[in-house]
Design a protein around this nucleic acid. Structure first.
Lengths: 262, 262
DNA sequence: CGCTCGGTTGAGACGGTTCAAGACGTGTGG
DNA sequence: CCACACGTCTTGAACCGTCTCAACCGAGCG
């Protein structure tokens, strides 16, 4: 299992675009090597599932490009989103016999770097630093979920949408490979409705209003452009700081959006 | 640090009412002993804070009796609840320099068993099983937060309130020390409004309607009685299973409500 | 006694859903 | 190439749940 020079061994991780911003990027070289041994890359089409609800979780890993949606199924058939995983985010649930959520690709170009759960857990038992990172990640996600909860309970749909667009805009801003004015919209309008706890109709009405006011412009379904940042911030609800701290706390710290294949 | 017979040593934990249902109850005897060494019991009055928002977290621990509310502060002054901690729940955030939430007592008889964060973290580094439990706990809380998120986004206030009452009712049902028909309501109506993302007025209207329909009866502010379970379930929205699985996934597995002091 | 605090009740307004119909773009088969 | 169906988005109108504002009540307390 051990190579003669484990610290010098090159792995596919060395060329991974999201490693720096990802949970695995700051592990020791030894552990990174071990993880690389059991990891594999997988491409997903929109709607393709990697985790069914109430099923035993089999795969864990990180998003490399595209987006995953985390959703729950309601008895009336609706499937509201409870989370959105973007490049460098960790997905899956270790040490659990079932998953409370389902996870599937939200866009067509989604690429994930994943591990078999059993293999991963064995590794985690050998190296406590893995569990440590997982715990920190879970706590961050918990903060994010709580932030989003507050958002759903206290803001109007217009504010929520503005906040969501601002988050995507900021994330683009910290992406050196994407200097243009276009921001990628990783999910469909229907998914946005699910994530923002509203309907397609309302999303449509509000985006139209934003267009009319010259705040944003939409180019196709996958891209939009922020024409008036200040007004977008105002629509998000006065306090500029909220956008960064709520919902996806560290999204502005993430560095890279994948541009090629790993 | 080691006693001659560590496995036989009696600690205050042996008489702890919530230990069985708590995260610490299933740790090894050795670790339980070490934890007991650094733990101390603290009583809190309503509104007393154990964690300020954006401050470094200093205390971690478990709720022994009463309840803690987890809340965030909005720029307009509102303080919506994002979580409610009941006996045997773990609170606080290890390995973090700041807390995204504030935590304070929600009722007057709240008792917590707590640790100094630094001491706790030292212990956690020595015993990986502690971190393992913390991680599982964080993941459970994440599921709970997501469940609650769905609830806020997809159910009416009446349904949310009915679900909340059902949860308290079920929790009581599994409590051998509380065989009566009265269910303890650990928080004020104002806190309920915050937790259910609504207003005091609406809570009042709905509880009055429930009274009128003979579904529940309130005895004072701290107790209520479920007169018609089936109808309460119906108000919660058809599917009986939701109540258990959403929001507080394992609340029905918790065993004990504290009756005396530790 | 008057104060605050928690809860109750009513009237009105508003945001967002629901239902229904139409527009647009896209792929498919004749 | 057109006709057609299909999914996605758009728009309108009616409806309804909940919030807001405001007044009121009762209990506890200085």
């Amino acid at each position: 299992m051990q190579t003669p020079f484990p610290l010098l061994r090159l792995t596919r991780c060395d060329r991974c675009a999201v490693r720096q911003g990802s949970w695995c990027g700051h592990l020791s070289n030894e552990v990174q090597g071990e993880l690389a041994n059991i990891s594999h890359i997988r491409s997903l089409r929109i709607g393709q599932s990697i985790q069914a609800e109430s099923e035993t979780s089999q795969l864990l890993g990180s998003v490399v490009s595209g987006a995953l949606r985390i959703q729950k199924t309601l008895d009336d058939g609706r499937r509201p989103l409870v989370g959105l995983l973007l490049p460098s985010d960790f997905f899956g649930r270790a040490f659990a016999d079932y998953s409370a959520v389902s996870i599937e690709a939200a866009s067509d170009d989604t690429v994930v770097c994943c591990f078999d759960r059993q293999q991963f857990e064995k590794l985690a038992q050998r190296f406590p630093e893995i569990e440590h990172k997982l715990m920190l990640n879970a706590l961050d996600e918990l903060d994010a979920a709580r932030g989003w909860m507050v958002l759903l309970g206290s803001r109007t749909v217009t504010q929520r949408l503005a906040i969501f667009l601002m988050m995507l805009y900021r994330r683009k801003g910290s992406d050196p490979t994407n200097a243009g004015s276009l921001v990628q919209m990783p999910i469909s309008a229907a998914d946005m409705a699910g994530y923002l706890a509203t309907t397609r109709e309302t999303i449509s009405r509000i985006t139209q209003t934003m267009k009319r006011k010259g705040v944003v412009q939409f180019h196709g379904r996958q891209h939009f452009e922020v024409l008036n940042v200040q007004q977008l911030v105002r629509m998000a609800g006065q306090d500029e700081d909220i956008i960064g701290s709520l919902a996806m706390p560290d999204i502005q710290n993430r560095t890279v959006i994948m541009t090629g294949r790993v």
